Computed example of a mutant assay.
Amino acid sequence: MTGETIAMPVPWTARAPGALDAEGFEELFGRCFGEIHTYVAQRLGPDHAEDIVAETFFTAFRKRAQYDPSRASVRAWLYGIATNLIGKHRRLEARTLRALGRFGPEADSPGHEDSVAVRVSAQSLRPELASALAELDRRDRDVLLLVALAGLTHEEIATALGIPYGTVGSRLNRARKKLRARLGEVRVHG
């Protein structure tokens, strides 16, 4: 993620809870699909992203009456749903990261489209970083990757994951310390 954010039109923030109608939801899908897909692909790889993103938007559509714009931006709400679904696939994510740690990203990609997909996926991670991420507690990894890949603020992460603001900071701090220590070991021993 390049740090750009999705600017939602004013009506999204002005609507009352539960006001995400079918037409508005179609607009939401069009605006946010690519960003959520990129995030999921970076976490689980492109092969699994389509299913998880489809499930994210299906869940959001089913729960649209529960969406409360006073609690979170629609973007943070979608990232929270996606992260929870990724959590259900935590073994897949950890297995993918460990495999990338052993073998690294694929060496060649036949076409431009494939090279773009590899660049935005978990496969583009350096092997050392992938291994270090795999060793993190899932909750710490979620917070770290919501900051690093999605560019969410601490407040947005707290709302998206349903955790206290201070917990976001402590999980992020813990994850960063573990990564620094692990990556420092790799540099010394590698």
Results as ranks from 00 to 15, higher is better:
M1D: 00
G3K: 08
A7Y: 08
P9N: 12
V10C: 10
A14R: 13
A19V: 07
D21L: 06
A22H: 11
E23P: 07
G24H: 01
F25E: 04
R31L: 15
C32K: 03
C32H: 07
F33C: 03
H37S: 07
H37A: 10
H37G: 09
T38L: 14
Y39P: 00
R43I: 02
L44Y: 05
H48S: 11
E50M: 12
D51M: 14
D51W: 11
I52M: 07
V53G: 01
V53Y: 01
F57D: 00
F57A: 07
F58P: 02
T59A: 11
T59L: 08
T59H: 00
F61D: 10
K63Y: 14
A65R: 14
Q66V: 07
Y67M: 08
D68S: 10
R71S: 14
R71L: 14
T83E: 04
T83Q: 01
L85F: 02
G87S: 13
G87Q: 03
G87P: 06
L97M: 12
R98P: 02
G101P: 05
R102A: 12
F103M: 10
F103G: 10
G104P: 01
P105C: 06
A117V: 15
S121Q: 00
S121W: 00
S121G: 10
S121P: 03
A122L: 11
Q123P: 06
S124F: 13
E128A: 15
L129I: 09
S131V: 04
A132C: 11
A134S: 07
L136W: 02
R138G: 03
R138M: 15
R139A: 04
D140K: 03
D140Q: 15
V143H: 00
L144S: 06
L145V: 09
A148T: 02
L149P: 00
L152F: 04
E155L: 09
E155S: 10
A158F: 04
A158Q: 02
G162K: 02
I163Y: 03
S170F: 02
S170H: 08
S170A: 11
N173A: 09
R174L: 03
K178R: 14
K178W: 04
A181T: 15
L183E: 01
G184E: 00
G184Q: 05
R187I: 14
